[in-house]
Design a binder for these strands. Structure first.
Lengths: 253, 253
DNA sequence: TTCGATTTGTTCGTATGTATT
DNA sequence: TAATACATACGAACAAATCGA
């Protein structure tokens, strides 16, 4: 992990506005681990001095990262690297709703935890080298709410990044799993892409979800990424379509 | 339609920051139809004078509306009410992808067009009065790509807002339907909410989509809203799950 | 084609208010 | 209370894009 202070001057020649360069520079500091989740980053004045620009310019760069939920500003305190455990954001990425339109926030139950070689597809999805050893961490879970099983949840993680992840850590995590990724492995998810499929329950899924085989299910496949778009998690969730659906909102004020 | 210039002074007492009041004021001008889609709104200087604040404050208010895709700024020209026909935004709300992960951008084929009384559910969804007459406009369409039927598409619109909408207008619309709403009826969609369900094809759906009855389908129900969150469209799309899926992206830079 | 007026884009300096410690 | 840090607000300057004379 490179810890060098990025003190090289910004490019004034006009290729990109200074505030965008500030944004990129901050993003690089985050990617390199100079500032970790929950930590306070330098104040506007300090960053202005470090990058050799005005406070106004620092502020403009930070603004975009705040809008993207990567940084959080607090009046009177400072600017912090956003954490997934913040209540407001705890279910930032949760899109499952029940028939009454209420958001479903179930608990997790870990069924199995292990490490093994990545399949070709997993190497592809996680951008792992096509040759050589590539170990992935596999989690099989169920989500439950009020004694009822809501979904199966299978997660695949690149082993190299998640060496410190254990079954105990998962079981102890009461919040968003991504908060555990931050705290235990220093991995910061900032982007997710989801593919929502309709399918018929396989035998295994039917038994897990307590539906008959061939019943309609929603299969949600997610790829989560960190800074620079590096994929760090692939998860598949399967839900009983009769009880749950997927909801999104776009636009608005 | 009220055309009064909102020239009453902003509230300096501090209940809300000036730039937020500017934002609200601009939004109100848009909702009241003072500035229509595609039109140029007054320059920063003019707005600053009209609202009695500095240009900086106007800019801060506009910035949020630009981020929400409601206004668009062009250097050297001015600030404009965003149009849905802009190529970049033409499929802003399109989430359908094929098995290869490519976004599907089909054409429309109008099957039927008519007006009739709203059902109780439609009154609910479109926020129409629970009593008295309430006419809705109904569109039944198919979307096709390369001779293949992609989805059924059923749209319900509040008749009062869409009095000038005709089958000819729909058939003539080559772009996003929301551009036609803007041009013909002055209705500006700025927010959508979608509910994605997995289901089994009904007989009618199976015939339309050329699949067998009981095949898994995706059913996407959308409620589109304008300024102030007023719902202006309910649309239902049904797709063959074997060929298409629903994709979203969240977060990132 | 050149030139100038207009409008937004970027950057800076400064001042005051408010939350936190 | 005092110091610190972000939030809001204003004024100013120059750059870049646009458009019409």
């Amino acid at each position: 992990m490179i810890k060098r202070r990025t003190a090289s001057p910004l490019d004034v020649s006009g290729s990109q506005p200074l505030y965008r360069q500030v944004e990129q520079r901050i993003l690089r500091c985050l990617a390199e681990g100079e500032w970790k989740s929950g930590e306070q980053i330098p104040t506007e004045g300090q960053l202005a001095e470090r990058f050799g620009v005005a406070v106004f310019t620092i502020r403009a760069g930070i603004a975009e990262l705040v809008a993207a939920n990567i940084l959080a500003r607090k009046q009177g305190k400072g600017t912090f690297v956003a954490r997934h455990s913040r209540l407001r954001q705890r279910h930032q990425f949760s899109h499952i709703h029940d028939r009454d339109g209420r958001q479903v926030l179930p608990d997790r139950r870990l069924v199995s935890f292990g490490r093994s070689a990545a399949t070709r597809l997993e190497r592809d999805e996680l951008a792992l080298p096509a040759t050589g050893r590539a170990v992935v961490c596999r989690l099989a879970m169920l989500t439950v709410l009020g004694g009822e099983i809501v979904s199966t949840l299978d997660i695949v993680l690149p082993g190299a990044l998640f060496q410190r992840l254990t079954a105990a850590v998962i079981r102890a995590a009461t919040e968003n799993l991504y908060a555990a990724y931050q705290d235990t492995c220093g991995v910061n998810v900032i982007r997710i892409e989801e593919h929502v499929h309709a399918a018929l329950a396989s035998g295994r899924e039917a038994r897990a979800l307590r539906v008959r085989a061939g019943a309609p299910v929603l299969r949600v496949e997610r790829i989560a990424s960190t800074y620079d778009g590096v994929p760090v998690e692939v998860r598949t969730r399967v839900l009983d379509a009769a009880r749950y659906h997927y909801r999104t909102v776009e636009g608005g004020i």
